[in-house]
Design a protein around this nucleic acid. Structure first.
Lengths: 245, 245
DNA sequence: CTAAGTCCTGACGTCGCGTCAGGTGCAAGG
DNA sequence: CCTTGCACCTGACGCGACGTCAGGACTTAG
């Protein structure tokens, strides 16, 4: 007949611990088909085969209980795997948005060096709420597109763009305060820079641009307060500078 | 002073369960600063602020213990977040390879409809071991490139290519068995199809091609047995057809 | 006064094992 | 024969973030 293995040998051969095999035995997943008279487990070839099947299913992430059902023939494998893949997709996208949020927080906090803990926490709240808001205004493909472009541009470019807004907005505000004519060449130059920064965001995609405008319009007050965004007066100025240009 | 909230109100406002607030209280994360004489918890504004900070850090995925250290000022937040991000990266890549493996298994099993459970399991073993082998012969960027191309081509094209190999190999075998001259036009046509299929894999990238050849050479026996791959005789035939062509 | 709702504490269950703790079996050396 | 050392046994607790009772006290509306 086939070889009989003691539990230590099998554990080492399979790269597991003895405890794990004990665990599988208690769950009825892989039980040795024989014992010595002293009660030591003896695994036969069939047991080893079964163990490797368990490991295969474990490797793709099924729960031990699900593995048990599959090996007992109680559960069809294909739909289970299909569901499992969808579940994986969900977890992956969740982790990716999380990672993206973390990235935003980290670059933001590295940008300004005062790094107070409570500022930090407020920042995290901001980032996550912004993220939730984005999810309401952009659909799945749009978000993917944005993420891809950010990946391509790199963190530094993104940070640079935010800096550029923080510089450009005061300049436009000053121009409005000084009563500059929206048709003036300086105004048209400001509008050009403005649209350029906007384009860095939407990349020329009109769907993205429209969603962005809609999101801004419906959250203008919050953007203005929490992110030092532009107010309606500035927007009007730029709009007129564009249309007269 | 600020409003005092009972536990149920706070739970509903924060979208948590009462049990969760109990838990945070016992851990000392968020403890109510007052109680009624009957012992009911009363949360003040400061407690609410603290709760929302906890939730911000929890959303990022920190453990409750880590959150406690951060809020106590015992742990610097930035390096912790940086480490956490790396950890996330690892989990994401792990999940992605897993998802890719699952995808391979599912398409393969949908391709041929006999779908026996044990075949299924052997298939999973094959896929995962192939994946491990690939990891030894291709570096990170190469694997990413392969994954990207597979994404672009779609599952059907991949399945079609595998089918094409299963058709082409017997044809070449027949040609060799019939003693066909490697210089004959039919042989050169076979070689052209062969190289075309290879190109679908490596996409003209010489680095990918060389790694593939190396992997094949060092695992020829296994490929031949387990995947009905070509043997050395067929390869020689194609090589000669190519050089004489 | 009662019924329904809210609150309390305490304790077990989850998942896949890791990690003792306390004991037995077996072979070799002194 | 006794000890030493190793591999094995069973049983039990621990982890992490709560869910889910159980059993009881309080509160509020009718």
């Amino acid at each position: 007949m086939g070889q009989l293995h003691k539990i230590g040998q099998l554990a080492e051969a399979a790269g597991l611990t003895v405890r794990t095999l004990h665990h599988y035995d208690r769950l009825g997943l892989v039980s040795p088909s024989a014992r010595t008279e002293a009660g030591h487990r003896l695994y036969g070839e069939a047991d080893v085969v079964r163990l490797y099947r368990v490991l295969a299913l474990r490797q793709i992430g099924l729960s031990l209980e699900a593995i048990g059902r599959v090996l007992a023939g109680d559960a069809p494998l294909e739909p289970l795997l299909a569901r499992h893949r969808e579940h994986l997709d969900d977890r992956i996208t969740a982790l990716r948005t999380l990672r993206a949020q973390l990235g935003t927080v980290l670059t933001a906090v590295r940008g300004d060096r005062r790094a107070d803990v409570t500022d930090f926490l407020d920042l995290i709240r901001k980032v996550t709420t912004v993220d939730e808001t984005m999810q309401r205004y952009f659909d799945q493909t749009q978000l993917a597109e944005l993420a891809e472009r950010r990946e391509r541009l790199g963190e530094d470019t993104i940070a640079g763009a935010e800096q550029a807004w923080q510089v450009l907005i005061p300049r436009v505000r000053a121009a409005v305060a000084a009563g500059m004519d929206p048709g003036a060449p300086e105004a048209r130059e400001l509008a050009r820079e403005w649209m350029g920064l906007l384009e860095q965001f939407h990349g020329g995609d009109s769907g993205l641009r429209d969603s962005l405008y809609r999101m801004y319009e419906e959250n203008a007050a919050r953007v203005e307060q929490e992110f030092c965004g532009p107010d309606q007066e500035l927007i009007d100025f730029i709009t007129r500078a564009n249309t007269t240009g």
